[in-house]
Simulated scan of single mutants.
Amino acid sequence: MSNSDIFIGEIIGTAVLILLGGGVVAAVVLKRSKAQNAGWLAITFGWGFAVLTAVYMTGALSGAHLNPAVTLGIAIKDNDWGTVPVYIAGQLLGAMIGAALVWIAYYGQFQAHLTDPEIVGDPADKAIEGPHDETTAKAGPVLGVFSTGPEIRNVWQNLATEILGTIVLVLAVLTQGLNDSGKGLGPLGGLMVALVVVSIGLSLGGPTGYAINPARDLGPRIVHALLPLPNKGGSDWSYAWIPVAGPLIGAAVAAGIYNIAFA
């Protein structure tokens, strides 16, 4: 695989991942959506199918890592770091593109949701309170469409949850998911990893929303901060390091376990 194939493949694959994964969250939570209140099962299976679609679409082009944690785990396993920056750059850019596409697809629903007084409160009350800095304020009412956040804000629990979920994901990739070259996901591996993502969401997604992917969280969070959404609230940057650091730590631990127990 050339660097250009890797970069293009990761952009396309991660954009599709976020379009379909973020799209199912938007469908479930936004007002005036036909799928509103479909529930956590819809979200977890939606993300699993998003992984499956993106992997099958771009596996032959880039190996479909679609996740810096997966890229890091494979790099540690093979001690091969040459293409890591290319993978991560493509993943972050693709995640941002995918988040922008979710906004386009659900533009009317975002507007309806963020102009509903039941969701955002009375504008007169906001005027009395004074202006707020939306880039640093607490999570806004649609941030969950773009990125993750904890139900109970406890730094060590939140970090541990992301680490554990990513250990399961990356260890599954390294032991069962790789293609013959060992550089990316194969067809059967893509199916297996998609099912593992569903399992992680159902079992470990409750505390933090299971980012388990730094690009999936950081790229859309940046887009949330930039988009001209009315009453969107803050992007919760005080939490943003956890869904980046946790998955990277989890990936390193998973690769260490693999090299000790399986290699």
Rank of each mutant, 00 (worst) to 15 (best):
G205M: 11
Q176H: 14
D180C: 05
I212K: 10
Y210T: 08
S181F: 07
P207E: 03
G205V: 14
L185N: 08
G219M: 05
K183T: 15
G190Y: 02
M192W: 05
L171S: 08
G177S: 04
G190W: 00
T175V: 14
N179W: 07
L218P: 06
L178P: 11
V198P: 05
K183L: 15
M192A: 10
L171K: 12
Y210G: 04
S181W: 08
G205S: 11
G177W: 06
T208D: 00
L204Q: 02
P187G: 09
P207G: 12
L178K: 08
N179I: 11
G186S: 05
L174P: 10
A215W: 01
G177A: 08
P207C: 10
V193R: 00
D180E: 14
A194Y: 01
V197G: 10
G190M: 01
N179S: 12
G209R: 09
T208C: 06
S181T: 15
T208W: 02
P187A: 13
R216D: 00
R216F: 00
L218K: 09
L195R: 02
L204Y: 05
V197R: 06
G209I: 12
V198K: 02
Y210C: 03
L202S: 13
G184E: 05
A211G: 07
L204V: 08
L191G: 01
G186W: 00
I200H: 03
I200M: 02
G206M: 14
G190S: 00
T175G: 15
G182I: 14
G201V: 10
V196L: 10
I200A: 03
T208K: 04
A172R: 08
A211H: 03
G206K: 15
G190P: 00
V197H: 07
A215N: 07
V197F: 09
G182N: 14
D217G: 06
L202I: 15
P187F: 09
I212S: 12
N179Q: 11
G184M: 09
G219W: 05
M192K: 06
G190L: 03
L218Q: 10
P207W: 07
G177Y: 05
A172T: 14
S203V: 12
G209P: 09
G206T: 14
V193M: 00
G184P: 06
G182W: 14
P207K: 11
G186N: 06
N213G: 13
N213Q: 13
R216H: 04
G205L: 13
L178C: 12
S199E: 01
L204M: 09
V173C: 15
L188K: 05
G205W: 08
G190I: 00
V193L: 02
L171F: 13
G184A: 11
A172Q: 09
N179P: 09
L191D: 00
G184H: 07
S199N: 01
A215E: 04
L218F: 15
L204N: 03
V193A: 00
A211Q: 02
T208G: 03
V173D: 15
L185H: 07
L195T: 05
K183A: 15
